[in-house]
Design a protein around this nucleic acid. Structure first.
Lengths: 334, 334
DNA sequence: CCTGCCCGGGTAATCGTTTACTCACGACGT
DNA sequence: ACGTCGTGAGTAAACGATTACCCGGGCAGG
């Protein structure tokens, strides 16, 4: 594999000149540039990024550590990140922590070892430890979920208010026994959505019934089981409507509802977090809380790049808002 | 940031000993190992992966260049890749070429510059040029789509046979004017599925009608427009059933169908490629050709890792088969 | 004509590891 | 007792780029 000295030899100049010619940093005689470029082309020279990064003490790579690649919310976010990174010549390394603290820790280690320029992280739990990064001055930005023990920038959604709004919407549609299916305790988005749900009940003057609340992993399987329990009326009367904390869980819950021979909307009101292209096609079309995933990605990436260039800025917190999209699954009369 | 010489100084040994102690390669006096480990911990030493890779002339990173992050088929594949890579200590860099030859070329350049150990690629077109990689001995494996001009391993699905089977299935259900909505010409999966569709028509003894075939990007938007055209009966009588070449297109097509006031199954038969968790929830539940995406990822990753360790193996071609899952959208009588 | 500055380009140090050599020392075989 | 061999640890040479520093020559101003 051709190196810079091969190019230098072929062009009859020093390696320094090759470097300067190819990077266009300092002024080099156009005739020499010509010779160098020619030689490089002939040899099929591609600079060794490793050596370059080692010398420059920086890499044009940002790591995006997300908690679930198969969740469309995160892939939309990833696209947002990539689009802005790409535009300024940065590459994005997408790491899938899989809601697993251990994997996440490993990826954080890799991030510091590879000396990435910065890290975007959706923490698997509030216990996530990013000191390994912050102590070395690597900028970290929390997305979707806050990082309570660290003074990092964060880009969040006002998910509590959104959950409240969704719950109030269900109440306004006439549902009275509204339940909630949320994620594991300790994951901020799960807890916030539950809190917002309670806010909603209070403001709609509905009684809180703990038997209508279930937690499960942010996956379809757990949600399906939990939903089956709820519909069986274990521990009390069954709900007539439900707020579901994410997309994958909604699928599980809808499967359970359909297995029980019920139909969303008329039989049981359903609102779920995260819009998806298929949501309008479901029977009944699914009412959702649409989160600005792509936009979160772009905002977070811009913030990160800004901090890479100026590490002295004070940490900021950006909160975007979500939007309720009413469809038939929350309409008892349609 | 602490370096290996800081650790060496603190432990009172040479850098070579530190390296050996920490990597456990050669035998080092246990007492020294102890001192070194201690010193490393005290300094919070994290080896510089860049320097290590430069010296070792290898990286434990494989690049996965896919054509669409938002396509669940590719994210499932990505998970497969990641699970096997992770298990042997490799990291996966996920690059989104976005069905864009230019972006793809850029990512291939990055892959050679960063000297990744290997590349998994789903080419955006048959014109994709991977010589930059193969000439340098970087193993490349084509996934989902073949790479005609290069002698690389490939992991494919027998998509033509699957398309044929799906078409025959529609015919058996009693549909007679079966159309096809496929991807852009030049993308092998798009062309193969179209060919399989024609095979199916032939074996069901149905007449081919070019006015029932449409091409669009592998996205919802284009498919929706094309479907609207088909339903309007432009250029002939309209189809009574449709084979759709991918998941995202299916969504677009189903939207168009619903806008036209039609219902899949009874009004128009629909079979789509790619299973999705929401497919059973659609109105009507969607008949699909399920591709073994996760398995393709694991197989491809294993192949790549094998080739990283032994570059002399002859290129192989692995073909997995897809499975038809009949649901209500292809049943005219339900 | 001399001095000093500017500019283009070469020499060599540097980034932080890993590892080929080398060396010292103790043990062992003859 | 002497050569040899093995073992453990240090010295220094890579890896392949970037860049601080230096040097020589041309040119302008006094």
């Amino acid at each position: 594999m051709a190196t810079i000295s091969d190019v230098a030899a072929r062009a009859g100049v020093s390696t320094a000149t090759v470097s300067r010619a190819l990077n266009g940093k300092s002024s080099v005689d156009p005739a020499l540039v010509q010779r160098v470029v020619q030689a490089a082309r002939e040899l099929g020279y591609q600079p060794n990024g490793l050596a370059r990064n080692l010398r420059r003490q920086e890499t044009a790579v940002i790591a995006l550590i997300i908690s679930d690649v198969e969740n469309p919310f995160f892939t939309a976010l990833a696209r947002g990140v990539e689009d802005v990174a790409q535009a300024v010549g940065y590459s994005v390394v997408l790491c899938n922590a899989d809601e697993n603290g251990e994997k996440e820790r490993r990826y954080i280690d890799v991030a510091v070892q590879e000396r990435v320029a910065g890290v975007l992280l959706s923490p698997t739990s509030t216990a996530t430890d990013v000191r390994a990064l912050t102590e070395r001055g690597t900028p970290v930005i929390a997305v979707d979920r806050p990082l309570p023990h660290a003074a990092t920038d964060s880009v969040l959604v006002d998910t509590r208010a959104a959950a409240r709004e969704a719950t109030v919407h269900l109440a306004e549609q006439g549902y009275t026994r509204i339940g909630c299916l949320t994620g594991p305790s300790g994951i901020p988005t799960a807890d916030e959505r539950l809190a917002g749900y309670r806010d909603g009940l209070r403001s709609a003057r509905l009684r809180r019934d703990p038997s209508l609340v279930r937690r499960a992993e942010f996956r379809a399987a757990g949600a399906r089981a939990a939903m089956t329990e709820l519909l069986a009326g274990e521990g009390g009367e069954r709900p007539d409507a439900l707020l579901i904390a994410n997309n994958a869980m909604a699928i599980g819950a809808l499967v359970a509802i359909s297995e029980a021979g019920l139909r969303p909307g008329t039989d049981i009101g359903v609102v779920s977090f995260d819009d998806a292209p298929w949501a309008p096609l479901i029977d009944r079309p699914l009412t959702v809380v649409a989160q600005p995933a792509y936009e979160m990605g772009t905002v977070a990436a811009q913030l990160l790049l800004a901090r890479v260039n100026d590490s002295s800025r004070a940490p900021t917190q950006t909160t975007l808002s979500a939007r309720l999209i009413p469809r038939a699954s929350s309409n008892p009369t349609a």
